[in-house]
Design a protein around this nucleic acid. Structure first.
Lengths: 335, 335
DNA sequence: TTGTACGCGTTATCAG
DNA sequence: CTGATAACGCGTACAA
């Protein structure tokens, strides 16, 4: 095959009878170019089908217009929503998102950070689920602003947008106890060290006893995991009168299993979720949960992102933000 | 603030006492470098915290290591899964995904394609939901391989991986009729021109009469949209004995609404979904649907992606593929 | 196995 | 408002 040379600014400049620099200026906003010249250039651009090469532009200007965004999974509608809101904000600002899926693995996260660093993103957005030492070191050394979301870590890298998963779960537990729950079981995930789910589990460990825990599901935990765990709990610990889940999906699975087992919810057993996923609203009965708002997290993250990048481009550092989006308990029909 | 110069290959080369080119080689795989030299370089790299600049590398080598991936939404677990599988495949190959969310808008898609083109991706992956003329023209002119997924368009740009949404829905309708459904209603979305959902709707229009359609939900259609539409249908057309939905989420919403309304499913009314989302398996009763497999679509797309890029890097063109992943009908408990 | 010269396509800078 | 020239940091192509 014949590799046809791509059209460059030089070609456009030649065609329009101006210098490359003039073309470069005409293609950016807020630059002073004579209207006539700009028109000529626009014409040549269309005629030749010219498309800017941002690799070259970025190399020269030292602005990549990239934002690195790392989430553990997309098969979690809340994270998917955060990604959508952030991506949208980036698009408005002419930024391009570099998406990375860590699959709930710190090693994978580190690998991704390393790879993304080579694209010189102007900001990093991480989901809190534990970071390796190397990741933190790498990020700090890079001088690139970092925003962590979905939790409020004790020692954030820079900015954080989230809430205390530990505290929120603690509140929900208190409400269940107040409602008369005596034997409370917990359905969680297998990754509970330094993770958000782990913080909820920790609240259970601290506030409930004795402990009845089923946490052998690989995240993201599914409906089916919840159903299976529920059956196990009710079979082995029939005295259980309240099953608290790490999130809404397993709570829904548990609820469906309860229906299949002929167990009355909430009369015989209460079930709680976490997150206010759509499923918790839509199911019959609707599920008692914690009203986390992914849109808010995305929006706040987007705002910090914008400011941090703006500052960085001026050679400044945007002061570390800590946005607390403490969620409320949402009492519905399963508890 | 003081803008500290970033460390480049030159710095590493200087520190290691070799030329830049040797460093460049040492950092790539499968290049012959004396073990001793490589070690010296690795040491300097770590010592200086050097991170490659892929902008410069890409500019020079004309390989961006980027793949553009456009999906309408992430709040659809099937699309989220496709993204995951494809992203994973890319990571294995050292490719970075540029994610774009079109929000079911052809204009948005065109805007994104234009923006991404400036990053010189080595391949484009699009979800079929209609493309503007300009988008197609842009893509064809770019010479970049394009893979369309989730449908088998009559006139694909290059490669396609998917199935006929029209045919699959047609089959499901035939099965419902055979089971005795007389008055079949349809719950769909508002975007039905050239879209995948539109193809399913078209099957309904062609195979059922009279038509009872509620399709005022903006995609992605939700559980609640399904519930609302179901109530409307059963109220206005009580003779309806089968409600077919554009996808599983509204089918689940309809099912929940039926339970709230005290309508027996499937005895009084049958309900069908489309896609075999997890919710259709987990709900009680489980939902009859069409067994689309997002993993397969992601995997096949990944394979073509790899081959197409490999060919393109050699200046060749990988012959247009058409992978048909026709799904099966999954009879479950709602129909 | 290693080095040299040059070019990739754009923007910064300074001059006009 | 426009242009000339020098980077930007790396890989290609060749030579040694």
């Amino acid at each position: 095959m014949f590799k046809n040379k791509s059209v460059t600014m030089k070609d456009v400049a030649h065609d329009a009878g101006v210098s490359v620099m003039t073309v470069s200026r005409a293609l950016q906003k807020d630059t002073s170019i004579r209207e006539e010249t700009r028109l000529k250039i626009d014409l040549s651009v269309k005629k030749l089908g010219y498309v800017m090469n941002k690799m070259a532009g970025g190399l020269s200007s030292k602005r990549s217009d990239f934002v690195a965004l790392l989430v553990p999974s997309l098969n979690n509608s809340h994270l998917a929503t955060s990604v959508r809101v952030i991506t949208d904000k980036c698009r408005e600002q002419g930024l391009q998102v570099l998406l990375g899926l860590t699959d709930y693995s710190m090693e994978r996260e580190e690998e991704l950070v390393r790879a993304m660093l080579s694209r010189r993103p102007e900001a990093f957005i991480l989901t809190v689920d534990g970071h390796s030492e190397a990741t933190i070191k790498l990020l700090k050394a890079s001088q690139i602003p970092v925003i962590e979301m979905w939790e409020l870590p004790a020692n954030p890298i820079h900015h954080v947008v989230g809430f205390s998963n530990y505290a929120a779960m603690g509140e929900l537990i208190a409400v269940m106890k107040q409602k008369g729950a005596k034997n409370i079981a917990y359905i969680g995930e297998s990754h509970y060290v330094n993770t958000r789910g782990g913080e909820r589990r920790r609240a259970y460990l601290d506030h409930v006893s004795p402990h009845i825990i089923v946490d052998n599901s690989t995240p993201p935990i599914t409906f089916e995991d919840g159903a299976r765990a529920f059956r196990e709990i009710m079979t082995r610990y029939p005295e259980t009168d309240c099953v608290m889940c790490v999130s809404d999906p397993p709570a829904f699975g548990a609820l469906m299993e309860a229906q299949r087992m002929g167990i009355n919810v909430p009369e015989r057993v209460r079930i709680t979720g976490f997150g206010d996923f759509e499923i918790s609203r839509a199911s019959t009965p609707s599920i008692t949960t914690v009203a986390v708002n992914p849109q808010d997290i995305g929006r706040e993250t987007g705002i910090i992102l914008t400011e941090a990048i703006k500052a960085a481009r001026l050679g400044l550092t945007y002061p570390a933000q800590r946005i607390d989006l403490t969620p409320e308990i949402l009492l519905r029909n399963t508890a």
